[in-house]
Design a protein around this nucleic acid. Structure first.
Lengths: 201, 201
DNA sequence: AGCTTAACGGGAATCGATTCCCCTTATATG
DNA sequence: CATATAAGGGGAATCGATTCCCGTTAAGCT
């Protein structure tokens, strides 16, 4: 088996092409979604030959997987207010804003659709969320240190509990993603956390 | 605009064809997912002509939307233990079992992918969950009547809170869907509910 | 700076999903 | 139970995404 294209000479043009293609792919996904993603169109938007896109990525799902790997790297730093509720509320509102934003929401729908169709894309998606969860876990751990939550609380589980209701609305039930929903998500996670639901067995 | 096929003579053959095609579509989706759903293959599995499938449904997403409408009708009755925690635990385990089952999980991934690609499929998906949520809301309302939860608690919001962490794992983070996760989902919803997080403003 | 060859680019060829055409079957109605 | 026509079926024609071919450009190395 030979080296995959882009691994031997990753500098200059290769890197520029990758950036341009991922950018164009994000735009195309946000515009007409995963089902109508046309690699030739992405190539044209990116100003590169379609052959290049097919050769380096090969399929729509592989392109999305690479896009997700790229998205995972760009981390937005978390906020740090004094109390757990405020921190988690900030997280919930950040997630809500992302899922309610027209462009971002379409992009997320598209990558989740891709992940539902392909194992590699699913793995990339899981890594993306693992990174995000890891970023916000510290503020829960600080709260445990302050005595706001019981000892042994699983910080990642608390962070997941905040996002979960918002994603459930976004992907499954379609209920409105308003600010009240974000507040409830944060408050519910805190209430459950204080009750010891997330203490590791 | 003329009548859509299947609306003027819905009896006999038409109904048989619809049932056979939806059945075959479910099998095909469970087997290779939404991205590789081929309407011609569905037609062959169902023992009908491919023209029929294209004429009556027209696209993969429309077929999935119809499948979802069909799934929404087949309701599994909820359990009724004495306490809220037990009822919600039963719900959480039912959801977990569904999402962990190899065939059903693929089917759900496929319909969610389809819903991410098409508004009509999304509407059908939302209706499906609205039906399911409505089915389980009564056991929360009974708990409010028993004084287990504060007056004014939004029963549907409690039911959503139970499913949410499971769907979040299933679709986004990829964390394991074990029985402990289902228990935590039910317990977290109860704890938040008792704390008054789901009381309508 | 010069050389090797990885990686790119355009256009033709291919391949498979969808559509079209026209005949056949069987539902609904009187 | 006869009739009109809605709905279905098979196969050819079409159309667009993907692949192939081969010439061009520029990254990496000495």
């Amino acid at each position: 088996m030979e080296n995959a294209p882009g691994t031997v000479r990753p500098g200059g043009r290769t890197a520029r092409v990758r950036a341009a293609v991922l950018d164009a792919a994000g735009d195309a996904l946000a515009e007409h979604g995963f089902a109508q993603l046309d690699l030739a169109e992405v190539a044209q938007r990116a100003g590169v030959g379609k052959t290049t896109v097919y050769r380096r990525w090969g399929s729509a799902t592989a392109l999305v997987a690479d896009l997700l790997a790229d998205m995972a790297e760009q981390s937005e730093p978390r906020s740090d207010h004094g109390t757990l509720v405020e921190d988690l509320r900030a997280n919930a509102h950040l997630v809500r804003r992302t899922l309610a934003d027209p462009r971002q929401s379409r992009l997320f729908r598209a990558v989740i659709a891709a992940a539902s169709c392909d194992d590699a894309a699913a793995a990339a998606l899981h890594r993306f969320y693992a990174v995000r969860i890891e970023e916000w876990a510290p503020c829960v751990e600080l709260a445990v240190g302050r005595g706001e939550l019981p000892d042994g609380t699983d910080a990642r589980e608390v962070v997941r509990a905040v996002s979960a209701p918002l994603y459930y609305r976004f992907l499954a039930s379609g209920d409105p993603l308003d600010e009240a929903a974000a507040d409830r998500a944060a408050e519910a996670a805190v209430a459950a956390g204080k009750a010891g639901v997330f203490v590791r067995a």
